[in-house]
Nucleic acid binder design. Structure first.
Lengths: 207, 207
DNA sequence: CTACCCATCACCCGAAACAGTGATTCTTAC
DNA sequence: GTAAGAATCACTGTTTCGGGTGATGGGTAG
């Protein structure tokens, strides 16, 4: 018997999912909350196996609540819920310990598969969520300034810790040229020093 | 009907999975390969919906094959297989476009759930694999030198692009002190400049 | 053909980073 | 109570970075 708890600030969603699950004999509805605080309140004296959690809520949002819950109750599995495709938040919520993610309008079968998988300690992403993540990555890439092949080359060598003179020697250039590329990188990516350059590059998967 | 293809260099595994799946009426066994080359050969004139792929194989390994397959046939979903817990390779394979991961000794139910989920475009991780990933992360963290609170603080500010004098002003320290912390960071993390420091920090989730 | 971008090279200069060395205080652990 | 490490500060160099400015040649698209 899997004990399920839900946190969502939309009563409609709570009711909808409740009705989808009420005839499942191995799933027990143990409670619900409409904000982070009452969710945490519930867990003081009660528990659950799987928590369905909305991503956006007034006050503390799902991303933060997820981190707090996982900190206090590491054994509780969290399954994220969202109505729309929020790649960035999905990513953050996974980093905060969620075990999976589905859309609120997913089918009954998908919902139940997800709950079972998560309860077994598995990780489950619905297909639409996977697409959202991909689209988010593509989207962030289109917003990136285009780097020339030489610039990418120099960027990679900088990330590996080579200095301008070393890079120059390595790819047979004048150190002035390498310096030019380096300055162009800083300008194009709108950062002001090596630290920001590398951080930006890693975060945007340029390396 | 889900068309399943398997790539594994162990005949025992191929046979085992074949027998597990042969009575499933919505799963069709379309072929098998014992190395990357013959897998690629199969896909020249044939196709499949889901490919079960071993992580370690002679010649081109699963990680690489996964990248090649996804490049040539983006519509084919790849489900990773491994006998042991290889956190690092699992991570790499996911980065190369795999849709999920299970252990070879997983139950029939889990195998079938995984194939269905992946075929729907979802992402599925078996619980043991999730544990492997977690353990891998913990393991890599234990291998990390311990940074003091001050050092972490300085590290974060460096990553945000502040210079030593700016950091000194921001947290009310002498720039000499900040410089000391910075040098200790370089020494502890065994890197030789800011670029390597930030790259290392991001990769090891110190930021 | 000409305007534009890429790639190359050059120089100056101040600021920042990096290397080495050493010192003091304070807490924490044995 | 003392040994160890954290946190603080100090001085001196050398190297690298980053800003500014500008030049040349090659390819390409209008």
């Amino acid at each position: 018997m899997i004990r399920v708890f839900i946190v969502d600030d939309h009563p409609v969603v709570i009711e909808g999912i409740h009705s989808l699950l009420q005839n499942e004999k191995d799933i027990a509805w143990v409670g619900q909350a409409m904000n982070a605080a009452s969710c945490l309140g519930f867990f003081v004296n009660n528990t659950a196996d799987v928590v369905l959690m909305d991503i956006s809520m007034p006050g503390m949002d799902g991303v933060e609540l997820c981190a707090v819950m996982k900190e206090k109750y590491p054994g509780v599995f969290i399954l994220g819920l969202s109505t729309f495709n929020q790649g960035l938040y999905i990513k953050k919520m996974m980093e905060n310990g969620a075990s999976g993610y589905i859309l609120k309008n997913s089918s009954k079968e998908e919902l139940i598969t997800a709950i079972h998988s998560v309860n077994d300690g598995s990780i489950f992403f619905s297909g639409e969520v996977g697409q959202a993540l991909e689209e988010y990555q593509k989207y962030s890439k289109t917003k990136l300034p285009l780097l020339t092949p030489r610039e990418k080359e120099v960027l990679e060598l900088i990330a590996e810790g080579y200095t301008n003179p070393q890079i120059a020697e390595k790819i047979f250039l004048s150190q002035f040229t390498v310096d030019s590329h380096r300055k162009n990188l800083l300008a194009k990516l709108n950062v002001k020093n090596t630290a920001m350059l590398i951080k930006f590059a890693v975060e945007n998967k340029l390396l």
